[in-house]
Design a protein around this nucleic acid. Structure first.
Length: 582
RNA sequence: GGUCCGGUCGUUCAGUUGGUUAGGAUGCCGCCCUGUCACGGCGGAGAUCGCGGGUUCGAGUCCCGUCCGGACCGCCA
């Protein structure tokens, strides 16, 4: 046995006991005739004290150690002469009489401290060292805890964890697939699942009723701070349910997590339709920790010589309460922000109401009476700053959404300790893709249209609403799902709308269509982005720090250096010839 | 596919109008130090300024290209 206790265990109650500890050398403090060593393991830190007078040999040994050496120390627990209240073990220290170096260490390339001096790239390359640091270590422990609570909750409701395959078939819908060449079938490829979607539906046909899986999914798209090419979903499906059953069940899941992990009870989640979310927030994942809902001024702002307003399809405003003190420079900076190419607004108009009365960026076009009327229509109070954007509807909503989020951030309204979940309901079933000039499934091709909208499928597909829902937390989509089509005829109709020939549909999804001929129950489900959920519950929006071995911005694993070339023999076996020389 | 930011001792940052012995902090090494816990004090070593070209009497600094990293847009049913 390498140790009798771990490094966060010993207290005043262990005084005079003989103990053996093992761990990493965190820090060495040499004071002349005393040397202190902070010994670290997963659980915490215990101070070792070496005295030249008492035990010269062990003292000399201790002075040979370096940072991150793995050592084993046997000695006596003593009460400290000067205690450290910041440490759970701060009342005691261990005075070793025997010291063993289990393994020496090179000097690490960055300091293993809570606030490390290492940059991102280096820490990714030496991820196993970065994970020794408390913040990262705690993130992974937090992730484990969230996962356990998910399992506890779902298990208590009779959900069954069933594994689904990773080597499956490529499908044209959705994201780009990661693809795996088949050695035994020349020219054939597996694809890694973007999600276990069809399999969980087949499990419903199989009668499993309530399925879940915390499962890896793969999408070959560009990365973001909150997006990795492989990521984890809490994937769920239920049979014999309506939308309301699913909302209740998974609202329960998030409430359970918030209660168990954060000690917060949010009460029932608000619900909003997709239509209203876009109207009031310009986003299908609004952050409702703060107000600043959109105000439609399209009618009331018209009727002047101000061309920007006159020619606009839509005029929207947000009221930044108590921001009338913003300087001209600050407002210009906001305008610059929305004019960045990523947002692409053409400008920003404003009305300021301070102690000197109303002032606007379009004063020369508006009479004072008209300006006053507009300010009142927008619900302004003295001290407020109204920010107005005008232009094509879609673009204006999007840009004002960005401005709202930016303001929320800079005004400190996006408090990571506050949790404001909501359901967004009634998503459109389809969206028109200008590029391919065809309809796309907004959620996925198996999503059921609302029964009352089915008659519009032929005449006005764009206005058909789906039984689809997203769970949004603090401006992040953390889960989404739908009631599925379980009727073969309707599913065929959907495929047709999406531009699949009958032959193509059978080739891609024939297995599902076949299954639907053998008694498919009504069913529906939801999937949560586990990494995102874990990060949000941890008070952050970057998922990378909650994944043990993540990929970098360009999809590389800097530690193992993947992806990489493979040798010709492997290529040969896989019947692959490279078009470009390495 | 595109936009923006960055790359300087092990690490992290500074480096002014182009002329510096390329600087600080931290880490590392050595000496001193009996109560530290971000210990302290003194001293020392440590840099092809990402790479390739160009402008110039002279480039870390300006220009072009390229590679790498980060953030974002497109993309992500």
């Amino acid at each position: 046995m390498y140790r009798t206790h771990h490094c966060n265990e010993l207290t005043i109650n262990h005084i005079n006991q003989q103990v053996t500890l093992a761990g990493w050398v965190q820090r060495i403090r040499k004071l002349g005739a005393i040397t202190f060593i902070d010994l670290r393991d997963r659980y915490g830190i215990t101070q070792l004290a070496f005295y030249e007078d008492a035990d010269k040999e062990t003292f000399d040994q201790a002075n040979q150690l370096g940072r991150e050496f793995v050592i084993q120390a046997t000695g006596t627990v003593r009460e400290r002469a000067s205690k450290n209240p910041n440490l759970p073990t701060g009342d005691i220290e261990v005075v070793p009489h025997r010291l063993t170096v289990l393994n020496p260490s090179k000097v690490p390339p960055f300091t293993i401290e809570d606030e490390t001096d290492g940059g991102e790239e280096l820490r990714m390359k030496y991820r196993y060292l970065d994970l020794r640091r408390s913040p990262l270590k705690n993130n992974l422990l937090h992730r484990y805890r969230v996962g356990m609570e998910v399992r506890k909750y779902l298990d208590s409701l009779g959900f069954v964890d069933i594994e689904t395959p990773f080597l499956i078939k490529s499908t044209p819908e959705g994201a780009r697939d990661f693809v795996v060449p088949s050695r035994m079938h020349p020219g054939h490829f597996y694809a890694l699942p973007q999600s276990p979607q069809t399999f969980k539906q087949l499990l419903m046909v199989a009668g499993f009723d309530r399925y879940y899986q915390i499962v890896r999914c793969f999408r070959d798209e560009d990365l973001r701070a909150d997006r990795q090419p492989e990521f984890t979903q809490i994937d769920c499906e239920m049979a014999f349910v309506e939308q309301e059953d699913i909302l209740q069940t998974f609202e329960g899941l998030l409430r359970h997590l918030l209660r168990e992990i954060k000690g917060i009870d949010t009460g029932p989640f608000p619900r909003i339709s997709y239509h209203d979310a876009m109207r009031l927030y310009g986003s299908d994942k609004p952050d409702i920790r703060f107000g600043m809902q959109f105000i439609d001024l399209t009618r009331s702002a018209k009727g002047s010589e101000f061309k920007v307003f006159e020619e606009a399809e839509l005029i929207l405003a947000i009221n930044a309460e108590k921001c009338a003190h913003f300087t001209r420079k600050q407002i210009d900076q906001l305008a610059e922000y929305v004019k960045r190419p990523q947002i692409g607004a053409s400008g920003l108009a404003w009305i300021k109401w301070d102690e000197n009365g109303l002032k606007s960026s379009f004063d020369k076009f508006f009479t004072p009476e008209k300006l006053t009327h507009l300010a009142h229509t927008a619900g302004m109070q003295q001290g407020d700053l109204l920010l107005i954007m005008a232009g094509p509807a879609g673009k204006t909503r999007k840009a004002l959404h960005e401005l709202r989020m930016h303001l929320g951030q800079t005004l400190g309204l996006r408090n990571p300790d506050q949790f404001a979940p909501l359901w967004v309901l009634d998503f459109p079933l389809l969206e028109w893709d200008e590029e391919t000039r065809r309809w796309h499934a907004m959620h996925h091709p198996f999503t059921a249209p609302k029964p009352e909208d089915i008659h519009l499928l032929d005449s006005d597909p764009g206005s058909v609403r789906a039984n689809a829902y997203d769970l949004v937390l603090n401006g992040n989509e953390i889960g989404g799902g739908s009631i599925r089509i379980f009727d073969k005829a309707l599913q065929n109709k959907m495929f047709k709308l999406l531009g699949f020939s009958e032959e193509k549909a059978r080739e891609q999804f024939g297995f599902l269509m076949n299954a639907f001929e053998y008694g498919a129950p009504p069913h529906g489900g939801i999937a949560f982005g586990f990494d995102r959920l874990v990060a949000l519950l941890g008070g952050q929006e970057t998922i990378r720090d909650f994944i043990a071995f993540p990929k970098n911005n360009s999809g590389r694993d800097l530690m193992i250096d993947a992806p990489s070339y493979i040798d010709d023999q492997q290529l040969h076996e896989l019947h692959i010839t490279l078009k470009y020389a390495q």
